[in-house]
């Protein structure tokens, strides 16, 4: 286990990327919204919160190239690298989710910062209980991180052309799915289904998808070279 902790510590040595940048990005998005909110009188509902989630995907993509070759050549096992990296993102996601809930509470308590800015309270996502809010924040971050991590792992294992290949296959699959939906005239049903998904169902769906990314990235990195 000591090696896994070592990998967590190594990741967190880069405090800027893991702990500060997400909040700097979110903070600047928030600042822009505050300025806009104080200029206009209407209530603002914004998607600025998405920036911190998208950042998790970016760090997922980047971290493979940054840390995998380094740690493997320092004698880390691939398994430990994987476990350590997973533990790191889990810790960061838990911390970030709790922090988001806290600022969300402050936002409500200050009557939306006094300017009607709904930044941390997003319709649908933050409608449920505290626990359900925490769970959806956490799982979105994990999902996006591992999506990025899997992309990074594909690149590591099969290189640029391999990555293009994977995207081409995915693109084709989506095209076929869209085509079939149109052909059988099922768009109405699809939309009904999408609209009917509850937050909890969404979170559980993302969990399954996350596990797929986890399995894929682990399988790839086990066989990747440093």
């Amino acid at each position: 286990m000591s090696r896994v902790t070592g990998i967590v510590k190594t990741h967190l040595t880069d405090r800027l990327s893991w702990l500060m940048l997400p909040w700097i990005i979110l903070g600047s998005s928030f600042a822009v919204n505050v300025i806009i909110g104080s200029l206009i009188d209407e209530e603002i509902k914004t998607g600025g919160l998405a920036s911190i989630f998208i950042y998790m995907m970016v760090i997922g993509i980047v971290s493979v190239g940054q840390t995998y070759p380094f740690l493997i050549s320092f004698g880390a096992r691939r398994k430990d690298y994987f476990l350590g990296t997973s533990a790191t993102i889990a810790l960061v996601s838990v911390g970030t989710a709790i922090a988001l809930l806290l600022v969300g509470y402050v936002e409500r308590a200050t009557d939306y910062w006094g300017i009607g800015l709904h930044f941390f309270n997003v319709p649908y996502l933050t409608d449920g209980s505290l626990l359900s809010q925490f769970w959806i924040f956490f799982i979105i971050m994990m999902n996006l991180f591992f999506c990025g991590f899997a992309i990074g792992a594909v690149y590591r294992k099969v290189g640029r052309n391999g990555l293009f290949g994977v995207f081409i296959v995915l693109g084709l699959a989506l095209t076929v799915a869209f085509y079939l939906t149109t052909y059988f005239d099922k768009w109405g049903q699809v939309l009904d289904w999408v609209v009917g998904i509850s937050v909890l169902e969404l979170a559980n769906g993302l969990l399954v998808l996350t596990l797929v990314y986890v399995a894929a990235s682990y399988g790839l990195l086990r066989k990747a070279t440093a």
Binding site: I7, K9, T10, T13, F74, A76
Partner: peptide, 11 residues
Amino acid sequence: KDVLNVSPLFF
């Protein structure tokens, strides 16, 4: 110094 700080975790 970061490199030297993480080294003992692996050696």
